[in-house]
Design a protein around this nucleic acid. Structure first.
Lengths: 140, 140
DNA sequence: TATGGGTATGCAACTGAGTTGCAAAACATG
DNA sequence: CATGTTTTGCAACTCAGTTGCATACCCATA
């Protein structure tokens, strides 16, 4: 599998290649966990305006490059989407995992969302599963 | 089963019986869905201060009378706890359901949280399941 | 590689949710 | 009904997120 460059990923999604987009996307690629707006603001190295980061994250979500994760403490997290995700149609059926110890959030793409038996008359659409516990780094 | 009065529920939880607590608890008892802070503010009939509502909801959560629900759009919802919930130790393993049509949120206490197969090294604690779709009122 | 049109950025100012300190009012207890 | 404690309401504040607009940047074309 050929790893595309950051610029190529941006162009593929019909986005112009700018400093902020490159740095923020680079940060997500370097990080296998999920990131909050605040993490992005502090870890890009370069200081971008808050507004720019908000807009960049929003753009990435719209293009299906990243997706948002709902958390128990009601902060918004963002994580890279896998290839199945495309603009508009986001492939949401995967499990999110938050480590109680290191606080890192993972997208467990390999884990199948379990079926849920709903009461009569309820029809399921998207099922979000959020598991908290200990991750493979912290469970020793 | 004997239905306790609102005052009795408050006293049972070592809370003094005040207007705001009575009205807000009454609202939850009259409503089988979940409520946001905003809903409480608008539907109590009497106008309570925003701060009072925040503090009352927080108190109820601490006492295990209500619990919070994480939502995909990152707003905080509150819903009545069933009897198993007690102070500190909240019995969280139930499924939440958000209706795409009427936007109402339900606690499906009868539905068992499904088991999730995690990757090697991951240890599950609490599992939150959030299902979106159509509720029994809207699926016709 | 210089030019021009369109897009992205940064700044300032704003909104709205949630929090804190404190004095006044309401509650529980004897 | 008098007392001390708890709760309320107000004002002021913080912080996340949004919007409008002028400037800077990107990129396609010549």
């Amino acid at each position: 599998m050929i790893t595309p460059t950051i610029s190529e990923i941006l162009k593929r999604n019909q986005l112009s290649v700018t400093d902020s987009r490159k740095k923020i996307l680079e940060l997500f690629l370097a990080n296998n966990g999920a990131l909050a707006h605040n993490d992005v603001e502090k870890q890009t190295g370069v200081k971008f305006d808050r507004v720019t980061i908000y807009r960049t994250l929003q753009t990435f979500v719209e293009k299906g490059i990243i997706h948002t994760i709902p958390t128990p403490d009601n902060s918004i997290l963002y994580a890279l989407c896998k290839d199945e995700c495309s603009e508009g149609h986001h492939h949401d059926n995967h499990v999110h995992f938050v480590c109680d110890h290191c606080k890192k959030t993972y997208c467990l793409d390999g884990v199948v969302t379990p079926a849920v038996n709903l009461p009569l008359g309820f029809k399921a659409g998207v099922i979000e599963v959020l598991v908290t516990g200990l991750c493979n780094q912290c469970s020793n």
